[in-house]
């Protein structure tokens, strides 16, 4: 496993840069609904605002996603976390780590930031209870040294929720 907190500091490859520029252009023309990305000079870290969907328990709430791209994106998945405060959700830890398979094992280079956002919104929208994962405290304690969620061996929660 590459340490993504290190690799994300490495400069993006040419392929990654080209691909991210295309994603950015596409985002500006056609952003996924419910998300706002304030474009900065930093192509390697995107901070995206998430708006809880209407009619869900997160209606009217705003959260921030931080997306860090590794050098060899999109072959390797980006690191995606919620900035503090992270939404209360059975698959989202209080340190912002998200238990969602496409961010780790099931990542495919044909996925995009847009498709990640849609998956996260759908994960939020399908939740019926505002609560932390059962193992939240233990997990967060184990991550105190700044461990990236990509170094976690995830045991994916039931994806019905």
């Amino acid at each position: 496993m590459t340490d993504s907190s290190v690799s994300s500091r490495k400069v993006l490859s040419k392929i990654a840069t080209n691909r991210l520029q295309k994603e950015l252009t596409e985002w500006q023309i056609n952003p996924p609904s419910g998300f706002t990305h304030k474009v900065t000079d930093n192509l390697q870290r995107w901070v995206i605002e998430v708006n809880g969907a209407q009619g869900t328990i997160y209606d009217n709430e705003k959260y921030q996603l931080q997306v860090d791209f590794p050098e060899n994106y999109p072959m390797e998945a980006p690191q995606v976390i919620f900035l503090h405060p992270a939404p209360l959700h059975p698959h989202i830890y209080s340190n912002g780590h998200i238990c969602l398979d496409i961010l780790y094992d099931s990542w495919s280079p044909a996925m995009t930031v847009g498709s990640i956002c849609i998956s996260i919104l759908s994960m939020l929208s399908s939740s019926t209870a505002k609560e932390r994962p059962e193992d939240n405290d233990r997990y967060v304690k184990n991550c105190r040294n700044g461990r990236s969620p990509k170094e976690t061996r995830w045991w994916f929660h039931d994806d019905k929720v």
């Binding site: 392929i15 060899n72 072959m75 280079p109 044909a110």
Partner: peptide, 14 residues
């Protein structure tokens, strides 16, 4: 599903 050779190579190598 079409992918270019470079991307296939990157995908397979990863």
């Amino acid at each position: 599903h079409p992918f270019c050779v470079t991307c296939w190579q990157g995908y397979i190598s990863t």
